[in-house]
Amino acid sequence: MNALIEARNLHKVYKTDGVETPALRGANLTVKAGEFTAIAGPSGSGKSTLLHLLGGLDRPTEGEVWLDGERLDDKNAVERARLRLWKVGFVFQAYNLIPVLTALENAAFVLELRGRPSAERRERALAALAELELDGYAERRPNQLSGGQQQRVAVARALAAEPAVIFADEPTANLDSKTGLALIEYMKRLNREKGVTFVFSTHDPRLLEHVRRVVHLEDGRIAGEEVRG
């Protein structure tokens, strides 16, 4: 199977007030379509930075990023935004739903950005919410939902757009362990049944027991990889 995502010798250095802080120091990673991959590592190991670079949210200081056959690192902001819109889904640690929109509107938001007709948006968003067992919550606003439900809406938002890959940056960090585990199970089921490619980061070792492929990151470098049978 061809690589869906390929990172070659990724370096990222942040500069603040003239002080350089390296976040990634030559990371290499390949993810194939349909994989369910966890990026594990302690805080400050560069997990979020790696996901941001892989998802085209930021540009590396050095190295190359390829997504679905397109090189990302040499694209400008507008081109990267277009690529994110059509090929990438994101789930963030803090849920990051739009507070004035209902769960249904949030789930349909990426489709709206793509300019899809409202009937199609509604149908696909409702289907995505149903996949995450949120059928009865479509008209609720984020402040009327629990943390776990909000994060499921965030997954539904990414899912409804049917992207090539969904990046989830510490999606369980704000959830209790039971709810966090449940969310990972939802993601696994979508990966298994619908072939959705997931790449998510976590520093919670308990979650890693449920993941087939784990990439370990330490001090901005890939320290190792585990693939369970």
């Binding site: 949210l57 935004a81 990438v88 990051n96 990426v110 950005l113 938002r157």
Partner: peptide, 16 residues
């Protein structure tokens, strides 16, 4: 600003 950041992250370009 955070919300705008999310909207951009989800694929809205600067013109949008």
């Amino acid at each position: 600003i955070r919300e705008f950041g999310v909207i951009i992250a989800l694929g809205a370009d600067r013109w949008r």
